[in-house]
């Protein structure tokens, strides 16, 4: 049903009704934003990245053939754009000597100092653990944990077989555990 609705909206856009694209954006913006958060861990960056993803998706809509679900196509684009953004940021930080790993945890209204410190530490741990994954493992982890995609959906988005997607996800979790083990080593 959702796939048919998406395809109907896409047909409208292709017919020249650009405003119809707003419906697609509103339908998927939270999911795209969440995925971006999984990669950049910063609300402002995630919002900018989401905007970038939707602009690119609109520009590349002609390449969407409608064989797969629009969401699958969109999530694949989101992960690719996000990975590229993270790579560029890492490259820039080499020259700017900015510690991007500690930014992004702003004090929420009504949040105590202790809670803020705890949340900052949590975020730091998460960033470090995700940063040690390969690009494919990062994609698998974010799509599974942030988007809560099933393994089959994950396989579709990543263009893998179900077995390969399951294996990739397992390796991502195992690698994260290894990172955590190193961190807690006594």
């Amino acid at each position: 049903m959702k796939m048919q609705e998406d395809n109907a909206i896409i047909a409208l856009i292709r017919a020249g009704d650009k405003e119809a694209y707003r419906q697609l954006v509103e339908r998927y913006q939270q999911k795209v934003f969440q995925t971006c958060m999984g990669f950049v861990h910063d609300e402002e960056d995630a919002a900018d990245l989401s905007q970038d993803v939707f602009i690119r998706a609109y520009e590349k809509l002609s390449s969407f053939k409608g064989e797969a679900q629009f969401s699958t196509w969109l999530y694949r684009m989101t992960t690719n754009v996000a990975i590229n953004f993270v790579r560029k940021r890492k490259f820039r930080s080499l020259f700017q000597r900015m510690d991007v790993g500690t930014s992004g945890a702003q004090i929420k209204s009504g949040e105590g100092a202790d809670a803020h410190v705890l949340r900052t530490e949590q975020k730091k741990l998460l960033k470090q653990a995700i940063a040690r994954l390969t690009s494919s493992q990062q994609k698998a982890f974010v799509l599974s944990h942030y988007q809560e995609l099933s393994n089959q959906e994950l396989a579709d988005v990543m263009g893998l077989s179900l077995k390969a997607a399951e294996s990739l996800l397992f390796r991502a979790r195992a690698r994260m555990q290894t990172t955590l083990k190193k961190m807690v080593k006594l």
């Binding site: 969440q34 919002a47 998460l126």
Partner: peptide, 26 residues
């Protein structure tokens, strides 16, 4: 530490998309 990590994921998942994203895109 694994629980901390999963809590951080859950925390980030709660963040809502900023309003007017669709307006910005359009």
């Amino acid at each position: 530490s694994q629980q901390t990590l999963l809590s951080a994921v859950a925390d980030e998942k709660l963040v809502r998309v900023p309003p007017f994203l669709s307006t910005r895109v359009m």
